[in-house]
Simulated scan of single mutants.
Amino acid sequence: MKCPSAVVIHGKRIELVNCVPKKAEEWSIELARALAEANGIKFTDDVAKIVKYVREFWLQYGTCPPISVVESDMAIDRRTILALFGGRYDVICILAGAEPPTGCLSQVLSST
């Protein structure tokens, strides 16, 4: 995923580290849309709903939800979810302003 060091949203410069705002409170759906579109991801209503869901989960639990939880709670199958985000699970977390999972689990999720 292409990650700028900063973006400007509504005239405010937001510093990013690996596409995630340095200050968590600076995340917005507009930022998610800008990053998605810069990476060729069409920001549809379904994409926005999933990103918002993952953001809320992250705020509550401090981690991105397993894709099986997203699949179940959103009633969207895994392949459809991944297709919306270019086949990569980590992109969902990044767009939600959360650090994506690392290691083999992330690789497995992105390859299913």
Rank of each mutant, 00 (worst) to 15 (best):
M1H: 09
M1L: 13
M1N: 04
K2H: 02
C3D: 01
P4C: 11
P4F: 08
S5L: 12
S5E: 13
S5Y: 09
V7I: 13
G11V: 14
G11F: 10
G11M: 13
G11A: 12
R13Y: 09
I14T: 11
E15D: 13
V17A: 12
N18W: 03
N18V: 04
C19E: 04
C19G: 03
P21Y: 14
K22E: 15
K23M: 14
K23I: 15
A24S: 15
E25T: 10
E25D: 15
E25Q: 14
E26Y: 14
E26R: 15
E26L: 15
S28I: 11
I29A: 13
E30P: 06
L31R: 06
R33F: 02
A34G: 04
A34I: 10
L35H: 02
L35C: 04
L35T: 02
A36E: 02
A36T: 03
E37G: 06
A38P: 03
A38H: 04
A38G: 13
A38F: 05
G40C: 08
I41Q: 03
K42D: 08
K42N: 11
F43I: 01
F43N: 03
T44V: 11
T44W: 10
T44E: 07
D45F: 12
D45K: 12
D45R: 11
D45C: 07
V47Q: 05
A48C: 09
K49R: 15
V51W: 06
K52H: 11
K52D: 15
K52V: 12
Y53K: 09
Y53N: 08
V54G: 02
V54E: 07
E56R: 14
E56C: 11
W58V: 10
W58A: 13
L59V: 14
Q60T: 13
Q60V: 10
Y61S: 04
Y61D: 02
Y61W: 07
G62Q: 04
G62K: 03
T63Y: 03
T63C: 07
T63P: 07
C64A: 12
P65A: 15
P65Y: 11
P65F: 13
P65D: 10
I67D: 01
S68H: 03
V69G: 00
E71A: 05
S72C: 08
S72V: 09
M74A: 11
M74S: 07
A75D: 07
I76V: 15
I76T: 07
D77C: 08
R78A: 10
R78E: 07
R78V: 00
T80Q: 13
I81G: 00
L82F: 14
A83M: 11
A83W: 09
A83T: 15
L84I: 06
L84G: 07
L84Y: 14
G86L: 10
G86Q: 06
G87V: 02
G87K: 01
R88A: 03
D90F: 05
V91A: 04
V91S: 01
V91K: 00
C93K: 05
I94Y: 00
A96I: 01
A96Y: 01
A96E: 04
A96M: 11
P100A: 05
P100Q: 05
P101V: 06
P101L: 07
S106Q: 01
Q107H: 10
Q107E: 10
Q107D: 09
L109N: 05
S110A: 02
